[in-house]
Design a protein around this nucleic acid. Sequence first.
DNA 1: CCGCGCTGGTCAAAGGTCAC
DNA 2: GGTGACCTTTGACCAGCGCG
Lengths: 412, 412
Amino acid sequence: LYTNCVLDLLETIRVQLSSERMQFNPAHGEIELKTNGSLCSICADRATGKHYGAASCDGCKGFFRRSVRKNHAYTCRFSRQCVVDKDKRNQCRYCRLKKCFRAGMRKEAVQNERDRISCRREGQAAGSLSISVLLQAEASTQQFSSWTPAAHSDITAKKIALVGDVCESMKQQLLLLVEWAKRIPDFCELPVDDRVCLVIDSAPHLGGGSAYSLCWNSHDDLPVTGNDFVIPVSGPELEVSKVAARILEELVRPLRELDITDSEFACLKAIIFFAPDCPGLESPQPVRRVRFQAQVLLDEATCEQRGRFGELLLMLPPLQSVAWQMVEQLQLARLLGEASVDSLLQEMLLGEGASAAATASTAAATRASDNFTSVILPVPTGKFGSIYHFNMLNLRGAFLKFSRQADSEQYF
Amino acid sequence: LYTNCVLDLLETIRVQLSSERMQFNPAHGEIELKTNGSLCSICADRATGKHYGAASCDGCKGFFRRSVRKNHAYTCRFSRQCVVDKDKRNQCRYCRLKKCFRAGMRKEAVQNERDRISCRREGQAAGSLSISVLLQAEASTQQFSSWTPAAHSDITAKKIALVGDVCESMKQQLLLLVEWAKRIPDFCELPVDDRVCLVIDSAPHLGGGSAYSLCWNSHDDLPVTGNDFVIPVSGPELEVSKVAARILEELVRPLRELDITDSEFACLKAIIFFAPDCPGLESPQPVRRVRFQAQVLLDEATCEQRGRFGELLLMLPPLQSVAWQMVEQLQLARLLGEASVDSLLQEMLLGEGASAAATASTAAATRASDNFTSVILPVPTGKFGSIYHFNMLNLRGAFLKFSRQADSEQYF
DNA sequence: CCGCGCTGGTCAAAGGTCAC
DNA sequence: GGTGACCTTTGACCAGCGCG
C-alpha cells in the first residue's frame, strides 16, 4: 500500500523536473537541430568531436579524463544545481562532472595507459533487469497519462484539491502502476498471487505520494495532483495542507537539489515496487533478487558521484512516512465525513465497506483501461482469506472484495 | 572593433611563436639571464613566464589578477611617476598597476573565479565523523549495558516478555542512546533543541527496533530484549508476537544473511539517528550534512562489495515500519489496559498523561544515570510549546512534560 | 594509401593556497 | 587584508591506433 504512494510521489517529481528543464532552456530545440554535433553537450562550447560517449569540447574531455583517472570526489559548495556553460564551467567541478555523466560520458571509456578498447564487455549478465527495460516501461506508461507538463502554465486556473480529488488522482495512478509493472519481465515471471501483492502494497507509495511531490509547480512551490488540482500548503482542508507541506519539505526539496535523472528515477521506482517485505508474499526471495538488481542498477546510474546513491536510497524512509500519513489522513477525513472518498479507492486503500456505487463510479476508469492487456491473471477468490498481516489498513482484504467484482479483472 | 580583433590575433600568434621558440631552445636558461626575457617587465624581478600578456614575476602576476578581479581603483599619493622595481614595487599600487598595463598585460586575460581546490584540508574536510568515532561511541555505550551476549546460553531460563517488559527494555535503550549520542562531536555541536529532537525522534527506531533486531538469539530464532526477556513468536500476547515475527523475518534474517560488521552497524545507527526530516528540527541542514558523512562512511565500510551498501540502506524502511508498529502496539495495549506501561516510557513515547508515579518508577533509571555527564543542557520549558508536527506519537510533547520533572535533567 | 574519429599525452599559462 | 612563493588545474595542440 505505502509503496504505491511512494511511487506516485516519485512520478510527480519526475514530471515536474522535466517541465523545469523545458522552462530553463526554451530554445534548445532550434539550436540543437542546427548545430547538433558541433556544440559541447556539457558547456555548449565548440565541440571537437565525441569523447567518452558525448559530444564535447577539449576542456570537458580533459576534465572528465582527469576526474576519472584520479578518482576525484568533488563537493558542490552550493546546492548542486550550478549552471555549466563556457564561462562558468570552471566554477563548480562537482556540477561539471555531474553534467558530463548526464550528457552520456561513461567512465569505462577512459582507458589507463595505452589500452586497447575492450568494446564487447558490456553485457546483461547481471540479470534480465536493465536500465533500458525500466526506462521503456516508464515511457510506455507515460502515454496513458493524460497529464502533460506543458499544459501547466496557468497555476491560478487550477482548482484546489480536496480529499476527494486526491483520492481520484491516486486511483488513476494505480491503474498506470499496473500497466507499468506489466512491462517488466521479472514482474511477469512472479507467481500471480505475489504480483497482486506487490501492486496492492505499493499503491500508496507509487500511486499516491509520489505523484504529488513530483507534480509541483516550480513557481509557487505547490504540489499538483495527477488530475490537475493544486494542493495548497495552507488550504481549506488542514490534513491535505499538512501533507503538502511535508511533501515539499521532505521530498521535493531534497530531490530537487539532487536533480534526479530519468534513469535514477526508474531504478528508484523499481526498488520501491519490488518490496520483499510486502505482507502476504508467498515467495519473497525472487522479489528480493529483483530489488537487488534494481539497486545495483541505481548504483551504476549514479555514475560514481560521491554519496549520490546513498542520498537517493535515503529518500525511501521519508517517502514511506509521507505515504503513510497521507493514507491515514484520507481515512481520517472519511471517518469525519468531510470528503466523499471514491468507493473504489476506498476499497482498494482503506479496505472497508464494499458499496454498490462502486460500479458506477469506476466506469470512467474502466473505459480508460480498455486498452490494457491482461498480465495478472484473475485472482482466485478466497485464496487470501487466511493471510492476515498487521496493518493499519487491511489492503489485501479490500483487494479481495474488489477482485470479486465482475469488472475488476480488466484492471489486471 | 576589427582593430581589436586583429591585435588580438597578432598577440595570439606572437605568444605562440615565443612558446615555440622556448620549446626549440632547451638551453634558454642561460641566455635569458642576459636578455630581458627572464626579467619581469614590470619590476625587473625574475620572471616566471608570461602572464596576462607580459613577462612577469609571480608577485606582479598575482597583483594584477587581484586588482582586476576586485576592480580596485588606486590613487597615487605622489605625481604618478613612482619607480617600480623589486624593492619599491609595493610602495605605490597605482603606478604598479599602470606599469602592468603598459608592459602589455590585458585585463581580458584574467578569468573568472574557479572552484576551490583545498586538497590540503581534505584529510579532515570529509568531516569530523569517522568510523573510529562511531565505533568508540558504540564501545563506550556497551559498558553501561547490563546485557552481555555470553550470558545467553540458557534460553529456556528466560522469562517470556510481556508488553511491560518490552517497554522497560525500550526505556533502558533510550538512556543508552543519549550516552551514545554524547560521544559524537557532531551531535554535541548541534543546537540544544535539535539535540533533543533527534534523541526523541529516533527513540522508537534505535531504542526499539534496532536493539531488538540485533539482540537475537542465534540458536532459537527468538528475539531477546535488553533486559533479558524472550519475545516469543507465538506467545500469550498476540501483539508482541506479531512484532517478534516481523523483527525476525524483515530485520534479523536479512541482517544475518548480510552478516553485518561492527563498522557497518555503527554507520547505520548514525544514519538512522541523524534524521534531517525529524519533526521540529530548527536547522536540518547540519543534520543532513552529518547523515551524508555517515552514509559515505558506510559506503566505504562495505569495501566495494557489490550491492552490499544498497542492501544495508534498504534495511531502513522495514526498520522504520517495525518501529512504528511496535509503538502502536504498545499504545494499543495501554488502551486495552492489558499492560502497565511504565509512566516514564509512556510519557516519552506515547505523549500522554503525566503521572505522579513516574518519579518512583524512574528511580532505578535515575540511579543508573548518576555517572552520566551532562552534555545536553537543561531544556528551557515552554520553548517547544508552539511546535506541532503531525505524528502518530506526539513525542515532543511527551518530552516537554518529561523535561519539566526535576530529576529529568540528569538524563541529559 | 590517406583521411577520419577517438583514444592518449604534453605543458604554458590560467587558477588557488596560505604563512607571512 | 594584501603579498608572493609554491602548487594544481585547465585546455589547445599533437601523436598513435583502428577503420572504411
